[in-house]
């Protein structure tokens, strides 16, 4: 039985076809992590994103991967990605030279609830590379500072040399109504900051749980424990959000790889309210 033809959309790039972006700059953040600025085609919708969303980045001859956007959502001249070199595609991405082209699809997925969080305090809990998808949310809050109360950024990393955006992070901590705390699992002799897991930082946070929205991104174990801990400290699960990671090949719900129980992480996520994702976080090998 034939289908009624859908009204043709305005000229639109096929969903699996990347736009061509040009590498403007590659900045080394840590020994294995780099930040790339990519210039999209002028006026291309690929550059209009909401904090928390991701793109599919493609390297010719190598492949395609989902990478969170880590730059300023109000900058449309280039897109920023912070990438940890852990495999073939990420290695090829971070070793691009300015001027080279890569493919971009997106943006995809759900965003941090920044509209809903207006008038409230924000508690940002990041672990490792998880600070990258949260940075656009921080930029948004800093640009619209009057819309929010306190901003607290907790950041856990493996060791001091693994921490991202260190100068920027220190600068955020100097701003009024802003508190930043970084902690590492392994501190060297010269590290004068906190040593311990990020959940141990909650006791040092100055904010009211009843008017706080928490946004979490990091290793799944960290988010699971942090989510529970925040709940026990009075932040309701409905105001805790976390960003999930799963294997993604298409980013639009066709490939099936990112399924997590009833959800397709690529389009139902990556940002989920804790209430929604909590029942599935505890199921091993779901």
């Amino acid at each position: 039985m034939s289908l009624l033809a859908a009204p043709p959309a305005t000229v639109k790039r096929p969903i699996m076809q990347p736009a061509v972006g040009r590498v403007l700059q590659v900045v080394k953040e840590t020994h294995d992590t780099f930040t790339l600025n990519i210039e999209p085609p002028p006026g291309d919708p690929v550059a209009r994103f909401r904090p928390g969303q991701f793109s599919m980045l493609y390297v010719h001859g190598v492949g395609e991967l989902p990478i969170s956007i880590s730059g300023d959502p109000e900058c449309h001249d280039y897109l920023t990605y912070t990438i940890r070199s852990v495999g073939q595609v990420t290695y090829q991405l971070v070793t691009r030279q300015p001027g080279e082209c890569i493919g971009l699809r997106g943006p995809f997925g759900t965003a941090w609830p920044l509209t809903e969080a207006r008038g409230k305090s924000l508690l940002i809990v990041a672990g490792g590379i998880g600070l990258a998808p949260l940075r656009p949310a921080i930029y948004h809050v800093l640009r619209h500072r009057g819309d929010y109360n306190r901003l607290v950024v907790l950041y856990g990393g493996r060791s001091p040399r693994d921490l991202l955006y260190r100068k920027e992070f220190a600068a955020w901590g100097m701003l009024p109504d802003t508190q930043t705390l970084a902690t590492v699992d392994y501190g060297g002799v010269s590290w004068r900051g906190h040593v311990g897991v990020v959940t141990a930082m909650f006791r040092h946070v100055r904010m009211q749980p009843d008017e706080t929205v928490a946004m979490l991104c990091g290793p799944e174990i960290m988010m699971r424990y942090a989510g529970r801990e925040l709940e026990s400290r009075g932040i309701p699960a409905s105001r805790i959000f976390l960003s999930m990671e799963r294997n993604m090949k298409c980013a639009v719900g066709f490939c099936g790889h990112c399924q997590m129980g009833p959800y397709f992480v690529c389009k139902d996520g990556p940002v989920f309210p804790f209430t929604q994702i909590k029942p599935y976080l505890d199921l091993y090998e779901l």
């Binding site: 096929p14 699996m16 076809q17 061509v20 493609y58 010719h60 493919g103």
Partner: peptide, 17 residues
């Protein structure tokens, strides 16, 4: 799905419709 050709430092992308 797509064919991507490298021409200099440009990428030419064509959809296999």
């Amino acid at each position: 799905i797509t064919t991507i050709r490298k021409a200099g430092d440009q990428l030419e992308i064509s959809q296999e419709t």
